[in-house]
């Protein structure tokens, strides 16, 4: 069995752990905003699978939700949606 013990003297290790928002609110980088038409959505999960920053959730009953705090507006979800249920519109701010 292996015993885990922190190195002495608080030395840094070349390790990373996944956390939300490691690069800040990346939603502020967005110039185009994805908008979902849940009536066209067939819950195929393509947008959730392809989203490079993991901010899309598909819930069969509730439809598609996007976390706009971290969505960078790349448009991949629009591109992969087979039903054109996602469209990109210019970002106008909150």
């Amino acid at each position: 069995m292996v015993k885990i013990k922190e190195p002495e003297n608080n030395v840094k290790l070349p390790l990373s752990r996944p956390i939300i928002g490691v690069a800040g609110k990346t939603g502020l980088w967005r110039t185009m905003r994805p908008i979902v038409n849940n009536e066209k959505c067939t819950s195929c999960f393509q947008c959730e699978i392809y989203c490079p920053v993991n901010v899309i959730r598909v819930e069969p009953k509730l439809g598609v939700t996007i976390d706009y705090d971290y969505c960078k507006g790349c448009g991949i979800c629009e591109d992969v949606c087979p039903r054109s249920a996602i469209i990109m519109i210019p970002e106008i701010g909150e």
Binding site: V2, R17, P18
Partner: peptide
């Protein structure tokens, strides 16, 4: 004994 393990139980890079 070692400083950390990557064994799939906790995600780490």
């Amino acid at each position: 004994t070692q400083p950390y393990v990557i064994d799939g139980l906790e995600p780490k890079g």
